[in-house]
Design a protein around this nucleic acid. Structure first.
Length: 262
DNA sequence: CCGTATGTTTCATT
DNA sequence: TAATGAAACATACG
């Protein structure tokens, strides 16, 4: 699930659920999601602390308190949910923060590919989230040109490289390239000015709609809406879509709209 | 048992 | 140095 739009939704969830509230109790159901901190220390350092305004960079959610900062990544299956602390915990709830108003903020994750970190300083945060490019949501056309300059890799791999641009994952990468009519295997240095223009426009439009929906929309007029079809066809031209492996992930594209040579 | 899944890191190789 | 592919991480599902 989680790419930039999903994590932006989690940021809103955290803000409306927990911002301004104190942690009455931190519960660790599965310490397997904790990184660099024990369950005991997480409880000791966070209980009694008050959540401030959360921020997001790419797929990372950064939640400061009046003590340490909680840093979260959702991997492929993680999510953040807000409910009443009386509700039964879901099967995949790994950590929960019971708040001073009876609400509970739950970190749920099936696969535990990522998890939760605790940071004491800004340097800690930087070290945890690693090398990140600028957030995809605030990327100008000039930024894009600057980021792509000098690169020779495939455009799909480059767009989804968090150290180049933060926030784009496999679904967004495919969706943006389909909107821009650029083949995912094209190299960055082969893109024309016009193609980089289309790429930037597609990136902005796909992100705007996705952030509004808090996910890449499952819209039949979008590529992603056809992704799970047994025999998917292009919503634009009707030709069969093609699947292939690029940058280690399954890519989906239209061989008619997105030509490899052009 | 096998392959696949919206992520990231590490390692070997080109 | 840049870039790529494969593997690993943990888990569910068909």
């Amino acid at each position: 699930m989680p790419e930039l739009p999903d994590v932006e939704g989690f940021r809103r969830t955290l803000a409306s659920c927990a911002q301004g509230h104190r942690v009455a109790r931190a519960e660790v159901a599965d310490p397997g999601v904790l990184h660099g901190v024990t369950a005991r220390r997480l409880k000791r350092d966070l209980e009694g602390r008050r959540f401030a305004a959360p921020r997001r960079h790419g797929k990372w959610l950064i939640a400061p308190t009046d003590g340490p900062t909680v840093v979260l990544h959702f991997g492929m299956t993680g999510r953040l949910v807000c409910g009443a602390d009386s509700e039964p915990a879901g099967r995949f709830q790994r950590v929960a923060f019971d708040l001073d108003d009876g609400h509970r903020l739950g970190y749920e994750d099936q696969r535990k590919l990522q998890g939760i970190w605790l940071a004491a300083t800004d340097d800690d945060i930087d070290r945890i989230i690693g090398d990140q490019g600028p957030d995809a949501l605030s990327l100008s056309r000039a930024d894009l040109d600057r980021l792509l300059a000098g690169r020779r890799g495939r455009v799909k791999a480059t767009l989804t490289d968090q150290a180049v641009i933060a926030g784009l994952g496999n679904l967004l990468g495919d969706e943006i390239l389909w909107h821009a009519r650029i083949h995912p295997r094209r190299t960055v240095n082969s893109l024309t000015d016009d193609e980089r223009d289309r790429l930037h426009t597609a990136l902005r439009e796909v992100l705007r709609a996705s952030v509004r929906a808090e996910r890449v929309p499952d819209d039949p007029d979008w590529l992603t809406g056809r992704r799970d079809d047994p025999d998917p066809h292009c919503p634009r031209c009707g030709n069969p879509l093609r699947r292939g492996r690029i940058a280690g992930r399954t890519s989906l594209w239209c061989p008619h709209c997105q030509r490899e040579d052009a």
